[in-house]
Nucleic acid binder design. Structure first.
Ligand SMILES: Nc1nc2c(ncn2[C@H]2C[C@H](O)[C@@H](COP(=O)(O)OP(=O)(O)OP(=O)(O)O)O2)c(=O)[nH]1
Ligand SMILES: [Mg+2]
Ligand SMILES: [Mg+2]
Ligand SMILES: [Zn+2]
Length: 621
DNA sequence: GCCGTTTTCGGCCCGACTGTTTTCAGTCG
């Protein structure tokens, strides 16, 4: 049972308890346990086997720890079975409909024996909902409308998918007369990989005029709520957008509130209470006296801590660190100097190798790697050994034609079902940069795929593991290998891990990247671009890194070229890059060691020196 | 149900909008 499965069960149990009328704080405890379980990098299953480990998690005490152990062992726990008899599991999903919370769902269940969306729709269509206490005609219509909307239209979306519309709406609101400031807040500002809605914050202007401008935007299909300080709309695409309007003197406190996360807000508010104050979106106050509120910094400072970057506001350990002044100095997009995972039309990319290299250079990169697929993916024209040999000259030619950027001759080599690599060692030796990836047999059971990954990571020519789990957001589940062991192996062997920046991959994700960091693994942020436009996705990878709390020094492709190659040589003395990729048009006269090997010449000298300079780190395990 | 250099009991974040509530509960952010 994965952490996500466990979290979902406790989330469901919380709602069942809530519908049953349980103490709201008890309900909150179950929700909090679900959140904590979901945010753990290590499998809870494993922790459950060791004494006291679960109880060490915040928000999980004796009781919840035991219930988690029950679920891990048997798939359920007595309370869950008991609640299931009272509150059918299917009922829980009804609370996702707007306007239906635990109380009304309880009424539906008890008065009309409604158990499913179908039951609810039938009752609505025959006008039976409006009769119920706490219901009415308006709500009945609202429910019918919510039922008609597809799950997809109202579900979460990729951050990249809403990037443009978010900025468009913010600009629209900002143009309204009198409006002084507009920010996109919520999960968007925290750069979560998906967002449930958009949350806009504005200050200044006449409330009526601002709300009117907002709700009459051409994309707005439906107005869900309309007040003086807060309105909600649904766009034609189904995306919900909330606008909060606040006086300028409260803008910082409001931005803090509206950025969240909810749990971060609650923790800050508790600290305010401890200090004899009260925090809301209007400001931090001692009694009737405003203490802070114009800027976020002001509020954090008044609470005794430093400003927390939005990406870290997830109620993990950021408040503790902000108090102690131990917040990381997060990596920034402008720190990146390379893109080390790119495809061209030689395999499944859209543009030529030269076009991709020029585009990487135009984005300010000092070096890049071209990494076509290998032969395990014949549909994508994956390279076999002969094709790699021809590629050596193709890359050399591009180095000639595009001065000012170093080009690593790389490949994205498939990890075969047994953990062997898709190309022979002599061929791998032609490469400056070896990305290894899982693309096939992703459904292998945990032990099998763990062994497969560990074997692949142990290959001396490997530079980096690409999109490690192969998950697709909203699609494929992550491969079931033991990430902790894989990261330990990578750390011991100096293999890098990729943070793949494709908006629907983001792999490693923030949780795994955080664990990688604690294991001492360095990472690279790469776009895996199949077109020039996709080179701009790098920022989404940076967001993942920032959410993981990573600094510039944790990301290898922030290094200048020479230092990057030197670090690779040190970390991978037997590796693909042992000799260094010397090819660039500026030094085109010099042959790269890889190229030399390609023509059967010895390039032993440089590789050996690299190895001698610093032996491989080997961590005992 | 969790938690604790103020507590092992008694707190647990705080505010906006809606509809039917005949004075505010329910839901949501
Ligand atoms: N203090 C407090 N703030 C809340 C609460 N619920 C939401 N907020 C704040 C923090 C949230 O980040 C912000 C926006 O609410 P959303 O429901 O849109 O959540 P968020 O954007 O974080 O995630 P999302 O991707 O939309 O699901 O409002 C709450 O119960 N208490
Ligand atoms: Mg939101
Ligand atoms: Mg919202
Ligand atoms: Zn791939």
């Amino acid at each position: 049972m994965t952490n996500l499965d466990l979290a979902r069960l406790f989330q469901r149990l919380a709602t069942m308890l809530e519908i049953d009328g349980a103490n709201p704080f008890r309900v909150r405890a179950y929700r909090e346990a679900a959140r904590v379980v979901e945010s753990q990098a290590e499998p809870i299953e494993a922790l459950a086997g060791e004494p006291k480990r679960l109880e060490e998690l915040p928000g999980i005490g004796k009781d919840l720890a035991q219930k988690i152990r029950d679920v891990v062992a048997t798939g359920s726990t007595a309370l869950y079975d008991e609640m299931k008899a009272k509150v059918p599991e299917e009922i829980v999903a009804l609370t996702e409909l707007q306007g239906l919370g635990p109380k009304r769902v309880k009424t539906l269940m008890e008065r009309l024996q409604i158990h499913s969306r179908q039951d609810l729709e039938a009752a609505g269509k025959t006008g039976r909902l409006r009769e119920l206490p706490g219901f009415g005609e308006v709500l009945e219509q609202k429910i019918l409308k919510a039922l008609a909307a597809t799950r997809e239209a109202s579900g979460r979306r990729l951050l990249a998918e809403v990037w443009a519309v978010a900025h468009g709406l913010a600009e629209h609101v900002a143009k309204t007369r009198g409006v002084q400031q507009v920010e996109i807040a919520g999960s968007f500002r925290r750069r979560r990989e998906t967002v449930g809605d958009l949350d806009l914050l504005a200050a200044g202007g006449d409330p009526e005029a601002v709300m009117k401008a907002f709700t009459t935007h051409p994309e707005v299909a439906d107005i869900l709520g309309l007040g003086d300080t807060k309105s909600s709309v649904r766009l034609a695409s189904g995306l919900q957008v909330d606008l909060r309007l606040i006086p300028p003197e409260s803008f910082g406190a409001a931005l803090l509130y509206f950025t969240g996360s909810k749990q971060h807000n609650i923790q800050l508010r508790r600290i305010a209470i401890e200090k004899g104050m009260s925090l809301s979106e209007y400001g931090l106050a001692r009694g009737a006296k405003q203490v802070a509120g114009r800027t976020e910094e002001e509020v954090y400072r008044a609470l005794g801590m430093s400003w927390v970057p939005p990406e870290l506001r997830e109620a993990r350990d950021e408040i503790e660190r902000a108090i102690e002044g131990r917040l990381p100095s997060l990596v920034d997009l402008s720190d990146l100097r390379a893109d080390l995972h790119m495809h061209s039309d030689r395999t499944d990319g859209r543009e030529s190798l030269e076009t991709m290299v020029r585009a990487a250079k135009a984005r300010g990169h000092g070096y890049c790697a071209i990494t076509e697929h290998s032969k395990a993916l014949p549909m994508l024209k994956g390279f076999d050994e002969a094709r790699v040999r021809r590629s050596v000259d193709e890359v050399a030619a591009v180095r000639q034609r595009v001065p000012g950027i170093r080009v690593l001759h790389g490949l994205e080599v498939d990890i075969l079902a047994d953990g062997a690599l898709d190309l022979d060692d002599d061929t791998l030796a032609l490469l400056d940069w070896v990305v290894i990836s899982l693309h096939t047999r992703l459904g292998q059971p945990g032990p099998e795929i763990t062994a497969r990954v560990l074997r692949a990571l142990a290959h001396p020519r490997v530079s980096v593991m690409g999109h490690p789990t192969a998950r697709m957001i909203g699609g494929r589940e992550p491969a079931a290998f033991d990430m902790e062991r894989a990261l330990e192996e990578a750390a011991a062997r100096g293999v890098l891990m990729e943070i793949n920046a494709q908006p629907d991959r983001l792999d490693l994700n923030d949780i795994n990247a955080r664990m990688a960091h604690t294991k001492g693994v360095k990472m690279v942020i790469s776009t895996d671009a199949h077109s020039v436009a996709q080179l701009d996705n790098q920022r989404y990878g940076v967001f993942v890194a920032r959410r993981a709390g990573l600094e510039k020094g944790d990301i290898a492709n922030t290094l200048p070229y020479e230092q990057f190659m030197e670090a690779l040589r040190r970390a991978r003395p037997g590796g693909a890059s042992a000799g260094g990729a010397r090819g660039a048009t500026t030094t085109a006269a010099k042959e790269t060691p890889a190229a030399a090997r390609a023509r059967g010449k010895a390039a032993r000298g440089k590789a050996a020196r690299g190895a001698k300079a610093r032996p491989a780190r080997r961590k005992s395990r």
